[in-house]
């Protein structure tokens, strides 16, 4: 299945504060969600919003990006939160997609800086996504919480299984017990040995074959 990605951009200008400047068409009526979810990040972040997968990263604006010193009127460096939105789950974001979203974001950002006060949110154009796509349910799903009755249920289950095995085994005589294999690396012999108890006294069980 070919996935489509729509670039988006959340950024502040020299005067205006953070806002969505470039929005995907599926979110044009609720693009404020992107402002709420897109936070500064050191790598690439992924989240789901209303069934859409949002992939973004942070870009520090450079003088080359905008042809001027990248600071707002409070002397703070400018940064972009840019990325793309897909209708499928992204399991491994592609650098190609991120680069493409950055290009679209910077185009929009330059237009925004030219006239911040009158700028209105732009609608982004889709591109074929190169990122790995997975199951929609895989992202943002919290780990299952440990169940409160796990231990008793397991204990009861074990007892029941034991009961079934016992019941289906009929009245066959009890098979001879076999000792567990020794963990020692000492060579084994074929000489029957007499098991002892932990006290060193001879056990009451019969002689057992040794492990081979």
């Amino acid at each position: 299945m070919d996935a489509q990605g729509w670039p988006f951009l959340v950024a502040r200008g020299r005067r205006r504060g953070y806002s969505v400047l470039l929005a995907p068409p599926p979110l044009m009526s609720s693009y404020g969600l992107l402002e709420d979810v897109a936070r500064p990040t050191s790598g690439i972040a992924v989240a789901t919003v209303r069934g859409l997968c949002v992939v973004w990263s942070e870009h520090a604006v450079t003088p080359d990006d905008i042809g001027a010193e990248p600071r707002d009127e409070h002397s703070r460096p400018l940064r972009l939160l840019h990325g793309f939105v897909t209708e499928q789950t992204v399991t491994a974001p592609s650098e190609v997609d991120m680069s493409r979203s950055l290009t679209a974001a910077l185009d929009t950002y330059r237009r925004f800086l030219d006239d911040e006060e009158r700028f209105t949110v732009e609608r982004s154009a889709s591109f074929p996504a190169h990122s790995d796509i997975g199951s929609p349910a895989a992202i943002g799903k919290p780990d299952p919480r440990p169940r409160r009755y796990t231990v008793p249920a397991l204990a009861a289950g074990a007892v029941l299984v034991g009961a079934v095995i016992f019941a289906t085994s009929g009245n066959d005589p009890e098979p001879p017990k076999t000792p567990s294999c020794p963990t020692t690396t000492a060579p084994t012999t074929h000489t029957p040995v007499k098991p002892t108890t932990t006290t060193g006294k001879p056990a009451t069980t019969s002689l057992q074959p040794s492990c081979t």
């Binding site: 009755y149 008793p152 204990a155 009861a156 007892v159 009961a163 016992f166």
Partner: peptide, 23 residues
């Protein structure tokens, strides 16, 4: 079958004891 019934009762008792201990 009598043995099975006994074991089922034991299992239920285990559950009950765990629940009471939790409370």
């Amino acid at each position: 079958m009598g043995v099975v019934a006994v074991l089922v009762v034991i299992a239920l008792c285990v559950l009950l004891v765990m629940k009471l201990r939790k409370k």
